[in-house]
Design a protein around this nucleic acid. Structure first.
Lengths: 202, 202
DNA sequence: CTCATTTTTTATCATTTGTAAAATTTTGTC
DNA sequence: GACAAAATTTTACAAATGATAAAAAATGAG
């Protein structure tokens, strides 16, 4: 079986991790899914690569096939990490995607990463043409919205110590994969404070 | 001129504040907008009324025509206000809307309020039928997402004092309309701390 | 394996923020 | 306008967090 269209051989030939990723958002009819996949290509970048830049209107969004990334913002005083992305997560500059404006964040690869790349422009064209893809895009935004709301609530309702424990429970792998300085920043405390919290747990 | 369909006379007869509210999200073709408005009705509730409840899967969403509301969550220790809504804002339990699950929040009316009410079920039906409404729903989620992200960033990047000043500048009316205890909670500090911040500004 | 570099922890002190209680101001009702 | 209730500010003290520096541990290159 061959798949027609602009899809790369690379993408067509390997066991497909993309389909479940797309369907997790919203179950698409086969034709709509194919139409979308025509515009998706796979890319790899090395550890340390800056995938998105705060001073730029980004033109692409990414799905993480393999690897881990962090989003951070530069402030006059220091640098604040406010998001980690792992396998299955979506990397978007929301400001670019929604408002065509510069975002807040740089996104840095903390590992060598394999990514699925998709042009925002192509996606928006599809939204106007295919009701299933329009609803897929709706669910994409809605699911990110719930996740973002959960992060906001966690931050507003829980102390840094509680949030660290929450992270330990829900995502123990993250703490193995990411250095504690970034995690402290993510929790909104200094690395010294995080050390104190960790010391209390022993 | 008469408008056919299920729209109430009340809604049809008054100067329409609803159209601009709907179009601000995403400019709809006339037919799609009419299809949507058929399911929207206007309701009023008094100050103190609890519009959404944390322990309930909510079935409706609301647009605020007139008035001001707050969302808060009950914690074992106390009550945390984490959102204010005013004219033009949308009141949704995102967990109910997106995942059909209980949310975190009660929403209390801080004034007598006029609201536009819309059943989530009806809206979701429309999303499957009309690509323009599907894209309207997409933009609704996307715009709320950017707003939520901005609240998260504000909270993570700025001190309570900075955030109070930001609020003073961007939304001075809010501070007039809402008691400071709620605003302190919203800023993530005690009322005593907020008093200290306000005292320093004089 | 060893050394240099980076990351994490520990210790000390200064600052900020919270808690509790009292004093003051504002609001709403009769 | 006077009173009661609610909201806000002030004060004093306690607890938590940050800044800085130094020690310890972990990581990585040769």
């Amino acid at each position: 079986m061959t798949i027609q269209g602009g899809m790369s051989d690379e993408l067509a030939n390997q066991p497909d991790l993309l389909d479940p990723l797309l369907d997790k958002i919203y179950l698409l009819p086969a034709l709509s899914r194919l139409a979308l996949k025509k515009y998706i290509r796979e890319v790899s970048y090395p550890k340390g690569y800056i995938l998105l830049r705060a001073d730029k209107v980004e033109t692409d969004i990414y799905f993480i096939k393999k690897g881990i990334v962090r989003a951070y913002a530069q402030t006059p005083a220091n640098e604040i990490t406010f998001w980690f992305g792992q396998e299955g997560d979506i990397v978007i500059s929301m400001k670019s995607y929604v408002e065509n404006q510069k975002g807040y964040e740089d996104v840095e690869l903390l590992d060598n990463c394999d990514l699925y790349q998709l042009k925002i422009h192509d996606l928006q064209q599809l939204f106007g043409q295919d009701i299933h893809l329009a609803n897929w895009g709706r669910k994409l935004a809605e699911q990110e919205l719930v996740k973002t709301e959960e992060r906001l609530i966690s931050r507003q309702f829980r102390t840094a110590g509680q949030r660290y424990n929450e992270l330990l429970q829900k995502n123990p792998a993250l703490i193995q994969r990411v250095q504690l300085g970034y995690i402290a920043s993510y929790l909104g405390i200094t690395q010294v404070s995080l050390s104190r919290i960790r010391a209390e747990l022993k």
